[in-house]
Amino acid sequence: MTSSADPYRVMVVDDSAVIRGLLTRALEQDPTIEVVASVSNGQMALNQLPRQPVDVVVLDIEMPVMDGLTALPQLLSLKPGLQVIMASTLTRKNADVSLRALRAGAADYVAKPSSGGELHSADAFKRELTDKVKALASAARGGRSVGQRSVKPTATAPQRPASGSASGATPVKLRDPSTQMPEVLAIGSSTGGPQALFKLLGDLKGALRLPVLITQHMPATFTTLLAEHLGRASGMECHEGRDGEPLQAGTIYVAPGDWHMTVASEGTKRFIQLNQNPPENFCRPAVDPMLRSLAPIYGPRLQAVILTGMGSDGAKGCEAVVAAGGQVVAQDEASSVVWGMPGAVATRGLCTAVLPIGEISGYLRRKVLRSAA
């Protein structure tokens, strides 16, 4: 039986002995992580999984005997609740396969460092891999938290339900909703975000008649493919935001990898601005710059949604949204892969609702879009 005090147990699956060694060394520099198995293909991973407790599998995509996409559903079936991080190089093909894996149940992905070191500095890669493993392993053991506090969202009105966690947790106070119709929808997400975005935008298909801006923590190439997948899921025009591009109703704009996406205004014109200012919350793109730029332009006509993700990116931006009169909805703990970003917003008392991912679309239809559910 595994306790919360035990090291997080990881299996590394990659056909390259060099990459397996790199991943193992990076992970085991953290004393809270133990690599309990290191194997070279998906079939070996399936054979090894029942032999010892495993919290997280770091799974390569392209391998002989059995590749990662084939092994993924079998691993998840063999051990329900297992967290899987896909590992791939940043090619368009692998980015597309990684997104398919996320829709099939993988929790997250990492971009493997290239031989030339261009994709990630060693320190950045180690931090990303270690942080994701620890966050997902903690979630797998039921240890979702915000900082050091367990939180319990509670509704202040019956029509604004929120999920709960352990008894005795810190309550979350919800704000009263605005009566003003939004003119723009802004969404922030990270770990588990693609799955949540597919669900939310798929559920809202045909209902959105306003610009939608999305910042999802993803590298370049991945964001290009994410926009294509979201366009199919939503039935809307969806592409990466382009510098100087005017905002159009009924269009989804995804922040391109390695660029912060913000919005500026000239008179009644609203247009996108991209920049490569320093990362915020270790991220570029980051949610905070997007929300800070939108708040003074749209004020009470801005609707923000914070979905599953590690860390607290979006919290300061949501403070600006609320100060300007806008509204914030957060995904609840139970339906989040990691309740970091939405939890940080919820515990600051910034939300009008904290909801399961399957109920956010209905809330937006009824309370915000005023269209038939």
Rank of each mutant, 00 (worst) to 15 (best):
S4N: 14
P7I: 09
R9P: 06
V12K: 11
D14A: 02
D15K: 00
D15C: 06
I19M: 14
R20W: 06
R20M: 09
R25E: 15
E28M: 11
P31F: 06
E34F: 06
V35R: 00
V36I: 14
A37Y: 02
S38F: 03
V39H: 00
S40F: 08
N41P: 09
G42D: 11
M44Q: 15
N47L: 13
N47C: 06
N47I: 12
R51F: 07
P53E: 07
I61S: 01
E62F: 03
M63W: 03
L72V: 03
Q74I: 02
S77V: 12
K79E: 10
G81M: 04
L82N: 06
V84T: 01
L90V: 09
T91M: 09
T91S: 15
N94A: 12
N94V: 01
L102M: 00
A106I: 00
V110Q: 02
S114K: 15
S115K: 14
S115T: 14
E118W: 13
D123Q: 10
F125N: 07
E128A: 11
L129C: 05
L129N: 00
T130C: 11
T130V: 15
A137H: 04
A137R: 00
R141W: 11
Q148W: 06
S150T: 15
T154S: 13
R160C: 07
P161M: 07
A162D: 08
G168P: 09
A169S: 15
P171R: 07
V172N: 04
D176S: 13
P177A: 06
S178H: 02
T179Y: 10
M181K: 15
M181R: 14
G192I: 07
Q195A: 12
F198A: 04
D203S: 01
G206K: 12
A207C: 14
L208G: 04
R209F: 08
R209H: 15
P211I: 12
P219M: 07
A220I: 05
T221F: 02
T223C: 05
L225T: 05
L226A: 03
A227V: 13
G231W: 00
A233V: 09
S234F: 03
E237L: 08
C238A: 15
G241V: 05
D243L: 03
L247H: 09
Y253Q: 07
Y253P: 01
V254R: 06
D258F: 03
W259I: 04
T268P: 05
R270T: 11
L274D: 13
N281Y: 08
A286Y: 02
D288F: 04
D288W: 00
R292G: 00
R292H: 08
P296M: 12
Y298I: 12
G299Y: 04
G299M: 10
R301V: 05
L302I: 12
V305F: 09
I306S: 08
M310D: 10
G311D: 07
S312V: 01
D313I: 10
A315F: 02
A315M: 06
C318M: 11
A320V: 03
A320S: 11
Q327T: 15
D332C: 03
R348Y: 09
T352P: 02
L355W: 01
P356A: 14
S361R: 03
Y363P: 01
L364W: 10
L369K: 04
A372T: 06
